[in-house]
Design a protein around this nucleic acid. Structure first.
Lengths: 348, 348
DNA sequence: CTGAAAGCGCTTACAG
DNA sequence: CTGAAAGCGCTTACAG
C-alpha cells in the first residue's frame, strides 16, 4: 500500500488550505459552495479517509460506544436482543456501537485484569455498556480508571440492592406470578430448575421458594451447578435435570425452568419419557427468547424486553456522558408473563 | 469528570520526562528498574489511561481488527462461531477484535453508502473481516477507500468463482454426498427446501439438482422467498414449507433443508402431522449449529467448521496487513457430513 | 539510562 | 469565506 493520503494531499490537490478541507469534512461554518464541491470531488477521487486519531486528539469525543460482553462463550439470544436495542438507540443519536468480548476470572485482582485496549486506552470509545456476566473486580477496575460505563444490573454477581449507573429488569414479580398461577391451577408438586451460582437464577429460585412457602408448599429444587461452558443455553441442563427427577420417582406436576433453554431441554426429556406438556406436566420458562417458540406447544414464559433494556442502557450512558460522568439513578424495566400453551391444571 | 490525566501529569508527578513514561508504557528500551517502578506506581495511583489517539498518530497500526457483520438482524449461531474463531486467532496474535453491525441496501451506489466511522476513518481499525450477507457495492466502497479487508466468500451475493482476499467453505461436495447417500438408501422423492436468492441456498439447490438429475430423478423444490427479517433462522420457513408440501399431497420420502433452522421447522411440522423422523421421512440439514441438536433424533447435517473459517479469515487478514495490502490467495475450508439419527431407508 | 524536541494528522480560534 | 499557526497527547530518533 502506497503512502496514506492525508488532509494535506487533499488541500494541495484542491488548491486550498487544510483548514478549508477540514471545514467541508465537518460541515462546519460557511464554505463557498464551489470550493466545497471541488474539495468533495478531490476527496472522492483520492479515496481520502480522514485519520480519526488526528481528529480525536482535538475533539475529545469519539462518538463511539462499546458494548462489552463479559464471560460468554457465544453471543446468546438474550444479549443479542440487548445489543440490538443499544444499537438502535445509539445510531439514532449519531453514535456508533462497537461490540467486544471479554473473558476474565472473578478472582483476579482488579489491577491485574488484562483489559483490551478499548477500555485501557482513552479515545477509542467514549463509554461502555457492561453486559454478560460481570463481577466486582471488573467494576472496580473501570472505576479506578474512571471509564464511563453503565451496566446491565441483573447480571452483576454479588451486587446487593440496586446501584447507580445500572439498568435492571424486574424478575421478581413475574416469577412470583408464574408460581402463584400454577398453585392457583391446583399444582402442589412444583419444581424449580436452575443453578444458584448465577444471580438471575438465584433470584428466581428465591421468589419461587417464597411463593411456595407462602402457600404452605414445600419447594423442590434441582440446582446442580450449571456448566459454564455450556454453549447450548441450558438445553442439556434441563434434559439432565428432568431425567434425574424422573429417575428418583419424585412427584412432580409442574416445572419452573430457570430460563427458556432449560425449559426446552426439559420439554424434550419429558417428550422422550412419553410425557405430554401440558396434559401430564406443566412447564414454564423465563426470558422469552427463540427457544420459547421451539417447543410444542410453545412455552409459557416471562417476557424480558431485551430491546428496551438495551435502549435504557444506551440512554443512561449518553446521559452520563453529557453530565461529565455524574452517577445516574437506576432504571427498572418491567417484565410480563406470556401465557402460551405449556401449562394447565394438574392431572388428577 | 475532572480534567483528563495525560502523560505530562504522570511525568511531572514522577519527576521524569515524558519520554521515560512513554518507554515504560511501551516496555521499550531499557529503563532503570527503580524509575520504572516509580512511574508504574504513579500511573496506577493517578488511574492514567494513555490516549490512544496520540499513540496512533505516531505508530500507524492500531492492532485492532473489526469484524463487520452485514445485514443480519441478530447475531446468528453460524456467524457467532466465525467471530469466535476470529477472536481466538487474533487475541493470540496480540490484536483486539471489535464487532460492528452494518445494514445497507444492495442497490445503494457504493459512494452513497452510509459507512460507520470505523470504516470511513483511518486509524480506528487496521483491517476488516466482512461477514454476514454482503453485496458488491460494499466491496466496491471498501476498495475505493483502500480499506484492507478479507471477506467470508460464501456470503458474497453475486460473486462468481473464487476471488482473492476471501475464505470459503466447500459446500458442494458435502451437499452432493447428502443427496447421493439418500438416493443410495433408496429414496426417490427427495425435496429441497430453501430460498434461491441467497447464494448459499442457491449453491445447495444446484448441487441437489445435479445429483438428482445424475441419477435420473426429478428435483422437487420449495423455494419461496425467505423472509429477510426472519429472526428464527428458518424455523418458520421450514414449518410452512412442509405444511404446503403435505397439503398438496406431493410424494416425499426425504427432505434436504437449506440449513438447520429450516430443518428444525420441518421436523416440527412433520411431528405435528404425526410423521416420525426417520421412520416416515428422512431429514437432513446444513451448518451443524445449535438447532441440529435440538431435534429428536438429532439431525444428520453438514458440519461447517465455523471456528476454522474465522481463524482462516483472521490469518489471511494479518498476512495481508503484513504485506501492505497485497492480495491474498483464496482459501477453501472443507466441510464434512455428520451422520446422526434423522435419516434412513425410505418406508416401503 | 534519560530528556528536549520534532512530528504524526487533524480542528479551531484568530486574523484577514 | 479562507489560511497560517497553535495545539491536542503521544513516540522516537538524537544527543548526552
Amino acid at each position: 500500500m502506497e503512502k496514506h493520503i492525508t488532509i494535506k494531499d487533499v488541500a494541495r490537490k484542491a488548491k486550498v488550505g487544510i483548514a478549508t478541507v477540514s471545514r467541508v469534512l465537518n460541515n462546519s461554518q460557511r464554505v463557498d459552495p464551489e470550493t466545497r464541491k471541488t474539495i468533495q470531488a478531490v476527496i472522492r477521487q483520492l479515496g481520502y479517509r480522514p485519520n480519526a486519531s488526528g481528529r480525536r486528539l482535538v475533539k475529545k469525543a469519539t462518538e463511539m460506544v462499546c458494548f462489552l460482553l463479559s464471560n460468554r462463550e457465544f453471543m446468546n439470544p438474550f444479549h443479542s436482543g440487548v445489543l440490538h436495542g443499544v444499537e438502535r438507540y445509539l445510531s439514532q443519536a449519531g453514535h456508533d456501537v462497537v461490540f467486544t468480548n471479554l473473558h476474565y476470572a472473578q478472582d483476579t485482582a482488579a489491577e491485574a485484569l488484562a483489559l483490551p485496549r478499548i477500555v485501557n486506552h482513552r479515545g477509542i470509545a467514549d463509554g461502555f455498556i457492561l453486559s454478560g456476566t460481570n463481577y466486582p473486580n471488573l467494576v472496580a477496575a473501570m472505576d479506578a480508571l474512571r471509564v464511563p460505563y453503565v451496566l446491565f444490573g441483573n447480571n452483576l454477581v454479588g451486587g446487593r440492592g440496586r446501584r447507580t449507573d445500572a439498568v435492571y429488569y424486574d424478575d421478581a414479580s413475574s416469577s412470583r406470578q408464574l408460581v402463584e398461577r400454577l398453585i392457583a391451577m391446583g399444582h402442589r408438586h412444583i419444581w424449580y430448575l436452575g443453578d444458584l451460582s448465577m444471580p438471575w437464577f438465584r433470584r428466581r429460585a428465591e421468589t419461587y421458594r417464597q411463593a411456595m412457602k407462602a402457600h404452605g408448599l414445600t419447594p423442590s429444587e434441582y440446582t446442580e451447578p450449571y456448566d459454564r461452558d455450556d454453549r447450548d443455553y441450558g438445553t442439556s441442563y434441563g434434559t439432565q435435570a428432568v431425567n434425574r427427577i424422573l429417575a428418583q420417582g419424585r412427584p412432580v406436576t409442574a416445572i419452573v425452568a430457570g430460563n427458556d433453554g432449560i425449559a426446552y431441554g426439559t420439554w424434550r426429556a419429558l417428550r422422550r419419557a412419553g410425557l405430554h406438556v401440558p396434559d401430564d406436566l406443566s412447564l414454564v420458562g423465563f426470558d422469552d427468547v427463540h427457544e420459547a417458540r421451539l417447543t410444542d406447544p410453545e412455552l409459557t414464559t416471562v417476557h424480558v424486553p431485551t430491546e428496551e433494556l438495551g435502549q435504557a442502557c444506551a440512554r443512561m450512558l449518553l446521559e452520563k456522558l453529557k453530565h461529565h460522568g455524574a452517577p445516574q439513578k437506576p432504571v427498572v424495566i418491567g417484565t410480563s408473563l406470556v401465557e402460551r400453551g405449556s401449562w394447565g391444571p394438574p392431572k388428577l
